[in-house]
Amino acid sequence: MPLWYYDKKDLKSTPSIHDGVDAETEQRYRREGCRFILDLGFRLGLRSETMGTGAVFFHRFYMFHSFKQYPRYAMATCCLFLSGKVEETPKKIRDIMKTARLILEGARERYIPTLGDEKGDLILQYERILLPTVKFDFCIASPYSFLKQYAKTIVGDKEQIRQMFQMAWTFVNDSYCTTLCLQWEPEIIAIAVLYLACKLSKFEITDWTTKKENSKQKWWEQFVEGLTKDIIEDICHQHLDLYSKSNLSSPGNGTVGNPSIMLTPTQTNSTVTSPIQPISIESPSTSRSMPSAKRVS
Rank of each mutant, 00 (worst) to 15 (best):
H237D: 05
K199V: 09
P132N: 06
F165Q: 06
I276Q: 15
A190M: 03
T266V: 09
L147D: 10
T77E: 05
T206D: 02
A74S: 14
R288Q: 15
A76V: 03
L122S: 03
I281N: 02
L130F: 03
R128S: 05
T286E: 15
Q125W: 10
C34V: 09
T179A: 06
V21C: 08
E118V: 04
I279D: 12
P2L: 12
N214L: 14
S175C: 12
H18A: 01
H239M: 15
P15M: 00
N253G: 08
V172W: 03
Q267E: 10
V21Q: 06
D137F: 12
L115E: 03
R162L: 13
D117H: 03
A55W: 02
P251G: 07
S66C: 03
R94P: 01
C236A: 15
V56F: 02
S16K: 00
K68A: 07
K152F: 10
E109N: 02
P291G: 01
R94G: 05
D95V: 07
V172H: 06
T179D: 14
I188M: 09
E213P: 10
F81D: 10
P251C: 07
V272E: 07
K8P: 05
P143E: 08
S145V: 12
T268C: 08
Y29P: 04
R30S: 01
E109A: 08
K294H: 11
E26N: 03
D117N: 13
S16T: 01
D234C: 06
Y62D: 00
L182R: 02
E204F: 01
M164E: 04
F67S: 06
S142M: 13
K216F: 06
G252M: 11
R30W: 00
K152A: 15
I93W: 10
L200H: 14
A151L: 07
K68T: 10
E282I: 15
K12R: 06
I231K: 13
D19E: 07
C198T: 07
A23M: 02
D174G: 11
A151S: 15
L3F: 11
S283P: 14
A76G: 00
K199C: 08
Q217Y: 09
Y176W: 03
L240P: 06
M167S: 13
E87N: 13
M164A: 04
Q183C: 12
G226H: 06
R30E: 00
I188Y: 05
S287Y: 11
P2Y: 07
T114C: 10
L80A: 07
G52S: 06
Y111K: 11
D137M: 09
I232C: 14
G41Y: 05
I279N: 13
T210H: 11
Y62T: 01
G84D: 04
K218T: 03
W220S: 02
G45F: 02
G45D: 02
H59N: 05
K158V: 15
K135M: 07
D121N: 14
I281F: 01
N258M: 10
